[in-house]
Design a protein around this nucleic acid. Structure first.
Length: 457
RNA sequence: GGCGACGUAGCCAAGGGGUCAAAGGCGAGGGUCUGCAAAAUCCUUAUUCGUGGGUUCAAAUCCCACCGUCGCCUCCA
């Protein structure tokens, strides 16, 4: 039985889906005005991986991840470049898919973008207005928090405390500082749409409510995102959605922890971001996945080159084990027996428990160790099969690390031949000279009893 | 100020009343291999879980206090 920590209750709960064997899931995606950074990659990788795990466990998953393509920052950035906000967001959606794909993140079932759902958003706001949860002021429409009695339930806050907090921006037009914008009246040089309240555009929170209800229905199973979205974003989404339908909107709320750099949250506004593009180039996708999954998804995690090198090194241990197994068993194959069942049960036990990936890796590495010390072909074959099977949710690319072909290869082979000739006549000075030369070309030499092999570093 | 999370070996990180003298990874030290290396692999590396009390036959795990770190309360994954 899968258990998930639900932010709403603050506890681990058993997963009980609305429909049998089916999970409807919505993950908050990026605002597309520049390249995504490692912090944005965390929910993308973690929840993609969790989605695959749910599939592995027999669920059919409808996975939705949105793009926010209408927002102040997009408008500002596009005005600066002198292009339309559509052109700008199109560009960064394409860039997002490049990074996500390189990271091994599978495309979602649906990738809605706000501008394709403006009509639905308008209908949504009209509904709220009709039901007395919204009011209009000079072309802006606000949600009336005082009308929704469970406000604060998700973020475990008391509206009274927040009003007393007095850090909330004062906006004369609002009846209550906690009220939030559903629809914004158009300003000059901004994209806008016709609406019953005049020309304008959607507020931020409303898009997720409107798109999820259009694509997944009035209620669905899992809503996920970074824990910085709990308040106000998710609290507001929940309020407006439940105000509209009077039904429970989401069963399970999952929130990932933040990535920090030198103990400070990685974010665009702090300016300490590290692009996924750069990280992929320096460390590779496998190391990045290993890094992101090596700590429990709810905990904060520190980003540094030390952490990344560590992830890279530990990933290599898995690759080495696979190579070792292949060497030992060749194309031997057999049926699985109790051995597989036992290890599979351990893996499932770890991941069923709120997707405990560190525990899962612990199990995997125990098996890796066993693979090195075993000569039992039947067991080795089963280990290999399990590693491949589990890779369905770990999502590593074991092909990536195999050497890339190059025009230099015959040249390298020739040098190795020369070096081995030198070694045979015990001219080690010459042999070491060739080895150093190859090393400076990023070629690593491996001598063994079976001969010399090499690889790119 | 309010709400929440966290503090486990040199570092990262699971565990969350007894099976824990605490999983796994990185690093380090030693061995195997090698002409020497590199790579790989094997072994070793926490009587102890921020501090002080308490509950219990039994606590890293529960309770209280304190110290420290972080997040949210404004855009943010």
């Amino acid at each position: 039985m899968i258990r998930i920590t639900n932010t709403l209750s603050g506890k681990k709960e058993e997963l009980r889906t609305l429909e049998p064997n089916r999970v409807k899931m919505y993950v908050c995606g990026p605002t597309v005005y520049n390249l995504i950074h490692v912090g944005n990659a965390r929910p993308a990788v973690v929840f993609d991986s969790f989605r695959r795990y749910l599939e592995y466990r027999g669920y059919s998953v409808t996975y939705t991840q949105n793009f926010t393509d209408i927002d102040d920052k997009i408008i500002n950035a596009s005005n600066e470049e002198g292009i339309s906000s559509k052109a700008l967001s199109d560009r960064y959606i394409a860039e997002y898919f490049k990074d996500a794909c390189a990271l091994g993140v599978r495309p979602a079932t649906f990738h809605p973008r706000t501008t394709d759902f403006v009509q639905e958003i308008i209908e949504f706001v009209k509904d709220l207005e009709k039901k007395g949860f919204a009011y209009e002021r000079n072309g802006d429409v606000y949600f009336d928090v005082s009308e929704f009695k469970n406000y604060g339930e998700l973020s475990h806050r008391n509206p009274e405390d927040m009003r007393a907090g007095a850090r909330i921006e004062v906006n004369e037009a609002k009846d209550d500082p906690l009220d939030f914008t559903l629809w914004k009246a158009a300003k000059p040089n901004e994209p806008s749409w016709d609406s019953p309240w005049g020309k304008g555009r959607p507020g931020w929170h409303i898009e997720c409510s409107a798109m999820s209800s259009s694509l997944l229905g009035d209620s669905f199973d899992i809503h996920a995102g970074g824990n910085d979205l709990i308040f106000p974003h998710h609290e507001n989404e929940k309020a407006q959605s439940e105000a509209r339908t009077a039904k429970k909107w989401v069963s399970y709320w999952m929130h990932n922890g933040m990535i920090s750099v030198k103990k400070e949250k990685m974010s665009k506004s702090v300016g300490n971001i590290f692009n996924v593009r750069q990280a992929l180039k320096i460390y590779g996708a496998n190391a990045l996945r290993m890094y992101l999954l090596s700590k429990h998804y709810r905990s904060p995690i520190e980003f540094s080159s030390e952490r990344m090198e560590e992830a890279k090194a530990s990933f290599k241990r898995i690759v080495n084990a696979l190579e070792e197994i292949n060497k030992k068993i060749g194309d031997f194959s057999c049926k699985e027996d109790a051995f597989s069942h036992e290890w599979r049960d351990r893996m499932i036990e770890a991941l069923d428990d709120d997707f405990n990936t560190p525990q899962a890796f612990s199990t995997l590495f125990e098996m890796v160790k066993l693979a090195h010390s075993s000569d039992d072909k039947e067991k080795l074959y089963q280990m290999k099969t399990l590693i491949m099977e589990w890779n369905y949710f770990f999502g590593f690319n074991f092909e990536e690390s195999s050497s890339s072909s190059s025009k230099a290869e015959p040249f390298i082979e020739e040098l190795i031949k020369l070096r081995n000739e030198a070694r045979l006549r015990k001219d080690y000075k010459q042999a070491d000279k060739i080895r150093d030369a190859l090393k400076s070309l990023n070629v690593e030499i491996r001598d063994s009893a079976q001969g010399t092999t090499w690889r790119w570093i």
